[in-house]
Amino acid sequence: MPEFLGPFLEVLIGGLLAGILYSLVALGFVLIFKASGVFNFAQGAMVLFAALALVRSIEVLQSWGVNAGLAIVIGFLFSGALMVALAFAVERMVLRPLVNQEGIILFMATIGITFFIDGFGQQIFGSDAYQLDIGIPKESIFLLEGVFEGGILVNELDLWAGATAGLLVLGLALFFQKTRIGRALRAVADDHQAAQSVGIPLNHIWVIVWAVAGIVALVAGTIWGSKLGVQFSIAQIALKALPVLILGGFTSVPGAIIGGLIIGAGEKLAEVYIGLPYFDGGIENWFAYMLALVFLLIRPQGLFGERIIERI
């Protein structure tokens, strides 16, 4: 085995696992975009909001003397309910009045939602950094110790994140393919008006899809919070989901996953092999965006998106 391969694999695997976190956020975007054509800039803010709700409700419950396990369960139920309530509010107060507006107007509206949720969440739940511990193991483990000297360092938490993402994708795929609501969602995604004309209530669909995206945000927030602590910076790191979407295409669930892996691995490799040796580091702040930008110029519709023929 060549000597550089061990560290390289370690960086690569670390990057891939970090990429799964981006994928989790990107999944929420894709769901909403597929079903409503809304590019939901607020997905990152929703991740932070859900994580804050979870960590703070667990804290409060424990301070009331509720035992840890029960507090976690109630905390999840509470934050899940909160995300559903948020979906109702967004549909009622933002989407419904803006129906049939251009995509870019809706996009800007979701920037408004982002700011509102950021302010609201921190006002209610506080704006410090909180430790989230729901019992996911965080030990570092070494893989392939027989093959490489010292093995490859991997954090158990990341493996859990990978497994969760896999389950989530599987669950969503089943939901889309097998349930009645899922079929309705696909119909709406194809053509709003046609779906309405066969009796699919658009408003319900939007609430459902925003609620599902909210739950996905809760899952993402839980994993991110366990890894990095719950704090405001989560909302901004979640913006990395945007280049992931560009790579994967706005409408593709597998695209979100693969895009996340590419971005995660790409930026870690770039940081370690280009950023640190040649610059003062920190290129992972922008590398993902630049990668997406270059990619856009070559293939505007993303890896899995469909090409749109313009007509007049």
């Binding site: 590019f39 995509g103 870019i104 996009f107 913006l239 945007l242 280049p243 979407l245 560009i246 610059f279 003062d280 580091g281 920190g282 290129i283 702040n285 922008w286 965006y289 630049m290 997406a292 930008l293 856009l296 110029l297 505007p300």
Partner: peptide, 26 residues
Amino acid sequence: RIKGFYLAVATLAAQFFIDWLFARIG
């Protein structure tokens, strides 16, 4: 080549790249 939110993401690239450029290049 791109419009709307694709372009928004492209301009985010500018923002983060420029932030980095002035913070890290002495």
